[in-house]
Amino acid sequence: MTHLRVSTNYTYIRSLRDIKTSQDNYLALQEKLVTGQEINKPKDDPVGIQQVLNYTNRIGANEQYQRNIDYSQGLLQVTSSTLQSIEDLLMDIKQIAQDYKTSVVTSAERASVATTVESLLEELVQLANTKYAGKFIFGGTNTLSGTAPGSSPFNITEDADGYITAVTRNARGIDDLIYREVREGHLKAVNLSGSAAFMPNGEGLSGDIFQVVMDLRDNLRQNNIAALETDINLIQDGIDQVLQQDVKVGVRQNSFEIIRDQLTNENINNKDIRSKINDIDYAALMIEFNTAQTLLQTTLQSAAQLMQLSLVNFL
């Protein structure tokens, strides 16, 4: 066997390289311990960094979807409670009609209760113009009232005596649905079309609800008993339609609640995956770190001893 000739500098160069390697390893582990991250630069894990960046933005988008739902829930809540108030109000009107259609009631009493119906009608128009956070909930995309008259979703015309003679819709945008993205690629409407509760939709009303109430009021005023029965049926159609809309809103609220729970779970999962890729395993790393420390100490010690050895010492 031939032996490699070793020069004095050879020993130094080798020792220096060993020390540097040990130090690099030690410092790299220390950086991980300090940041708590496996990936401190893209080169640490080129595939991993792509996943980390991807999951980071997925988590952010998911939180945004949850916010979108939270913002929508308020509107749906107010829509639902408004629909219930409308339903209650229509029930009151129906009750009045039923009470006053019997022959024991005088025509004067009927004319008098007509003013009550008139004020309930005014209340109904107000409910139709309900605002949530300053925006009309039944106005479609036309959520803000302008300064011009007739710019609310539902506008009244009164006669000389102050009776409402017509309720006209501001047609512009009133039937537009407003969508929000509640999860990747899923657009969901968060409002009811302005006509849905008050206009014929093929399921309930055959005419608009305001007209039905106005007809009832006029029939009471004009003591037109025969027509009252028809009016009661028409109001019941209106109640049915409002109920249907309320159920729709309720279903949507539930589905948003479910999606929100799914999003929460998904994000727990997303964060878990990101953490598995990027977070250090402290226990394993501490062991590695201690090993590296011992190795560095040993390298330094052996280098120091090796370099002291020389024949010159013994001459």
Partner: peptide, 25 residues
């Protein structure tokens, strides 16, 4: 790798558009 890069800026920009979509007025 330290979370101050363009990646999050792109994400946050898209997120802000959702907030505008929630409050377009």
């Amino acid at each position: 790798g330290e979370g101050f890069g363009l990646n999050e800026r792109i994400g946050e920009f898209f997120n802000s558009l959702h907030d505008l979509a929630s409050f377009p007025e």
